[in-house]
Design a protein around this nucleic acid. Structure first.
Length: 220
DNA sequence: CTAGGGTTATGG
DNA sequence: CCATAACCCTAG
């Protein structure tokens, strides 16, 4: 059963390259302010509602990015952060609560979370903060494959610079994703894959994978 | 910076 | 429950 494809980013937001990222609830710095906007995806209404939610939050994101570009007083920013949330957001927040059972959880938090709260001390037992847990979109994968075919495997920093300049994905993320792609599409079919990719794309992945094997193999 | 082993969250 | 995806750690 496939979940409906949802467009998380408004065009403006997409341009910024910042995407909504799921995070562990305890780590959501703005959790108290925004509330968690989890929604059931079970019916169309909830789905639509969710998109509106994201839309509203996108507006906020774009706004705050503007604030960043033309820096003002910190107090100004503080005030905006603590109170001046997008009106449509408060409205939506109550609306979405009533949806019934939860479907797949799409925990997301706003981009400014990582911009402003990345240094908040963490209580995690692991000792580190997990910043981004979002699943890759097929768009991103396409970009990655494109990048790998241009730069080859191993020049992740270059690839990041040229193809994921503004994305939240780091060079290491790209590398890891590539590894996962190889694992996922090499040889036997997996039991399941979260993201269905177009056959041509898969074909390209396989080809590139054959060229730069992982894990390293000492000959053919 | 990258490779690769480890760890944690996700979701069938 | 457990395989997979996403993420972290770190030697070299």
């Amino acid at each position: 059963m496939e979940q409906p494809e949802i467009t998380y980013c408004s065009p403006e937001m997409e341009q910024t390259g910042l995407f909504w990222m799921p995070m562990q609830q305890a780590e959501q710095g703005l959790d108290g302010l925004l509330g968690d906007l989890e929604l059931s995806l079970e019916n169309g209404t909830a789905c639509r509602l969710q998109m509106e939610n994201y839309r509203a939050r996108d507006d906020d994101a774009v706004l705050i990015l503007k604030l960043l570009e033309e820096p003002r007083d910190e107090a100004d920013l503080d005030e905006w952060l603590s109170g001046g949330l997008h009106p449509s957001l408060c409205h939506q927040q109550m609306e979405c609560r009533k949806s019934g059972r939860r479907g797949a959880r799409k925990r997301r938090t706003s981009p400014w979370d990582t911009l402003f709260f990345r240094d908040i001390p963490s209580q995690r037992s692991g000792g580190y903060i997990r910043r981004n847990n979002s699943h890759w979109t097929s768009k991103e994968v396409k970009l990655l494959v494109q990048g790998v075919s241009k730069f080859g495997v191993g020049r992740w920093s270059q690839l990041k610079k040229n193809y994921f300049k503004t994305s939240v994905r780091t060079a290491v993320n790209l590398k890891d994703k590539w590894r996962n792609l190889l694992r996922a599409y090499k040889g036997n079919v997996q039991k399941y894959t979260l993201l269905e990719l177009e056959p041509p794309l898969v074909e390209q992945i396989r080809k590139l994978g054959a060229k730069h094997p992982y894990p390293k193999q000492r000959h053919s």
